[in-house]
Design a protein around this nucleic acid. Structure first.
Lengths: 263, 263
DNA sequence: CGTTTACTGTTAACGGCGTTCACACAAATG
DNA sequence: CATTTGTGTGAACGCCGTTAACAGTAAACG
C-alpha cells in the first residue's frame, strides 16, 4: 500500500466522477425531484447502468449523497458559529443548532435522507456512517469546548445506568473523546441527551406533525433549547441565547443567504 | 341526505372491501414486505387498477392504512394502561407511552408510515389526519385526567409566546379541549411539549440513530420520561414510574404478547 | 514499440412500481 | 323491462433498480 503520493490520472478522473455524482444528486433534490439512479445518470449525460461502476446499489448512492450533504450543511452551521466571537462558546453552539434547524426546515428531503434514513440492521458499513456524521462531530466538539472552558458539572459515571456507562466509555457516536479522562465521560451522555432533544423538535417540525403556528414561530425549538442549555452551564445566559435563536429564525428558512461556490 | 339508517347492501360490501384493504396492507407490512398498490391488490385476489375504485392514489392508501394502524395500536396502549388501577393516572400514562415505544421499536415500518410520513403541504385532508390521530387523543386525554385529578401547576397563558397562545386557544392537535377554561389552556402547551420529547427519543431509537446499547436498555427513554414527568406533577412518583417503564421494557419489544383477534 | 489488462461506458432486457384508459359485467334502480 | 351505477379486467405508458453481454479506450507491462 505504498502509493500515498501522486494519485494517478485515472484515480483523479474517478474522484471527479464521484464529485459529479454528488453534485447531480444534490441538484436533483434541490429541484424538488426524487433521487434516483436513472435521474442522476441522465443529469450527468450517461445511462443508469454506468453508475454501477461507482456505487453497488441505490442504497449506496443514498448513503454517499447523505454523507456529503451532511458534510456540506455542517460547513454552514460552522460558518454561522464563526460569525460570533471565539470566546462566546455558548452562543456558537446555539447558533449552530439553530442553523441546523433552519436548514432542516428548508431542505426537508435532504434532512430525511440524512437523519430519517433507517440505519436498521446494516451492521458494519452504515454504523460507521453514524460515527462519521459531520454535523454530529461539530456539535459534540462545541459542547466539549464549552465544558473545557468552564468545567460545568457533568453526570458522574457511577450515577449512570450500566448500559450508558458502557456507551460513554466506548462511544459509537460521532464524538471525539481522545484526551478525555474516564471520570469526565459523563459529557458523552450530555451529547446524547442534547442530540435527542434537538432531533425531537426538528424532526417533528420537518415532518409537520406539529401545530404550524408553533413551527413558524420556532417557540417549541426555543423551549427545548432553554430547557437543555442549563445542563451545559448556560443557565445565566438563557435570555441572550434565546435572542440569538430568534434573530436567526427571523431571517427565515433555508441557508442564511450565502450560496455555495458554483464550481 | 336522509339515508342515515340501513346501509344498503352495496355500502356494506364497500365497507367490507375497505376493511380487507387495510387487513391486506397490514399483513404485508407485518410480513416485512413493502406497501404497494399491486401487492395489496394481489393479496386480495384482484388487480391493481381495481383499487382505484377505493383510493384515488397510492398516497391515499398510505394515509388510510396509517390511520387504521394508529387506531389499532392505540388500543394496545389503552389496554396496557387499563391493567393498572383506575386511580393510578400517572402510572397509566407512563405505561401507555412505554407501550407506544415498544410498539414503535417492534414495528418500525408501521411507525414510519404513521409518524414519519411528511404531512408537508397537503393542506386540507392530511391536516385533519393530524387532529384525528388516535394515539394523540389517548395521551392528551390521559394528561388531562391527570391534571383534573390534582390540578398541578400549568403554564400561564400570559407567559406563553403569542404564537403558542394562539395555538392552545384554537388547537390543531389531537386534543379534546371542550369544557377547559381558557385560563387552563396551558395544558395544551404541556401536550405539545410532552409529545415533542416523546417523539424525539422514540423516532431516534426507531431510526437507529442512537447508540444500540442505549436503545436496548431504554435508558434514554427513561431519562426523557424522568425529566418530563415533574411537569405533570409526578415529581414524587419518579422512581415508581421508572420501575413501571423498566418492567415493560424487560418484557421485550413488540405487542405485549396479546395477539389480535383473527376474525 | 506492441500486447495485454483493467476500466468505463453502452444497449437490451427483466420484473416491479403507480397510473390511465377502454371495456365488460353484475347489481341496484326506475 | 331497460338503464344507470358500481366494480372488476387487460393492455399500455413511463418510471424505477438491477443484471448481462458487449465495445472501446486508457493504463500497464514486457
Amino acid at each position: 500500500m505504498g502509493k500515498l503520493l501522486e494519485p494517478t490520472r485515472r484515480e483523479r478522473q474517478r474522484e471527479a466522477t464521484y464529485d459529479e455524482i454528488v453534485r447531480a444528486s444534490r441538484a436533483l433534490l434541490a429541484d424538488g425531484a426524487e433521487l434516483s439512479l436513472r435521474a442522476v445518470a441522465a443529469r450527468m449525460g450517461l445511462t443508469a447502468p454506468a453508475l454501477y461502476r461507482y456505487v453497488a446499489s441505490y442504497q449506496e448512492l443514498v448513503d454517499l449523497v447523505a454523507f456529503e450533504i451532511d458534510k456540506a450543511a455542517t460547513e454552514t452551521f460552522r460558518a454561522a458559529a464563526e460569525a460570533l466571537p471565539a470566546n462566546d462558546l455558548g452562543g456558537r453552539l446555539v447558533v449552530s443548532v439553530t442553523e441546523f434547524r433552519q436548514w432542516a426546515l428548508g431542505s426537508p428531503r435532504e434532512f430525511s435522507l440524512v437523519f430519517a434514513n433507517p440505519v436498521a440492521d446494516g451492521s458494519c458499513v452504515r454504523r460507521e456512517l453514524l460515527t462519521l456524521a459531520s454535523s454530529g462531530h461539530l456539535f459534540t466538539d462545541q459542547m466539549r469546548a464549552l465544558w473545557e472552558a468552564d468545567h460545568h458539572p457533568l453526570p458522574a459515571l457511577e450515577e449512570l445506568p450500566p448500559a450508558v456507562r458502557g456507551a460513554v466509555l466506548d462511544p459509537l457516536i460521532p464524538a471525539e473523546v481522545d484526551g478525555l479522562a474516564e471520570g469526565d465521560r459523563g459529557i458523552v451522555w450530555l451529547y446524547m441527551q442534547g442530540w435527542t432533544r434537538l432531533y425531537g423538535v426538528v424532526a417533528l417540525e420537518v415532518f409537520g406533525h406539529m401545530d404550524p403556528r408553533v413551527i413558524e414561530s420556532g417557540d417549541m425549538f426555543v423551549d427545548v433549547m432553554r430547557e437543555f442549555a442549563p445542563k451545559l452551564g448556560l443557565a445565566q445566559d438563557l435570555d441572550r441565547l434565546e435572542q440569538l435563536i430568534r434573530a436567526r429564525i427571523a431571517q427565515g428558512i433555508g441557508p442564511a443567504s450565502d450560496a455555495e461556490q458554483p464550481a
